[in-house]
């Protein structure tokens, strides 16, 4: 019988002690960030979506070899006058379904001072169809925006 009351006292005391901990944290300021009204500032080295600069790229293929999932493909440009390969790219495509945002392509790129393929801070990106994942930058076509087959929220940076 005494054991019965002892157990009730023990459990009740631990309940009160636990509630004191939660009571103390009740009065502390809340740490929740109300997304999408408030957003966190991403740090400098944040690895968001990739972007490509088609004027500085020399089509050296180092990023193609460095990628672990083989999601980058490119074709070097041919000068129409001399019919020789120049150190520029004709088109450059990244398959974002396979990209795992590992930054190995950015580290392999030898362009200075700003690398041709680099991470941006963009992390909000939704697509409606699977073929929107292939993002292609073309240099020889009249448009200078990256063309995707379909509309996407990806804005060129």
């Amino acid at each position: 019988m005494l054991n019965y009351f002892k157990t009730i006292y023990k459990v009740g005391k631990s309940l009160i002690q636990g509630m004191l901990v939660t009571w103390k944290s009740f009065w502390q300021p809340s740490i929740t960030v109300q997304f999408p009204d408030e957003k966190l500032i991403t740090p400098e080295r944040f690895r968001g979506a990739l972007t490509f600069d088609k004027e500085t790229c020399t089509a050296c293929n180092l990023c193609v070899k460095a990628c672990p999932t083989a999601c980058i493909s490119l074709e070097p440009a041919v000068d129409p006058a001399t019919k020789k390969r120049i150190a520029k790219v004709s088109w450059y495509q990244i398959d974002f379904g396979k990209c795992n945002y590992c930054r190995l392509c950015e580290e392999a790129c030898p362009t200075k001072p700003i690398k041709s393929v680099r991470h941006t801070h963009q992390y909000e990106w939704g697509m409606l169809e699977r073929k929107e994942m292939f993002v292609k930058w073309e240099r020889m076509s009249p448009s200078t925006e990256p063309s995707t087959s379909g509309s996407t929220n990806m804005k060129p940076i």
Binding site: P43, E44, R45, N100
Partner: peptide
């Protein structure tokens, strides 16, 4: 970790021969 390596789960920070980059 995000400030040091850029990602929250798949860091790819410790490399062969050292680390990816020094601390910010």
């Amino acid at each position: 970790f995000e400030e040091v390596s850029g990602a929250r789960m798949t860091y790819n920070y410790i490399r062969i021969g050292g680390v990816m980059a020094d601390l910010p």
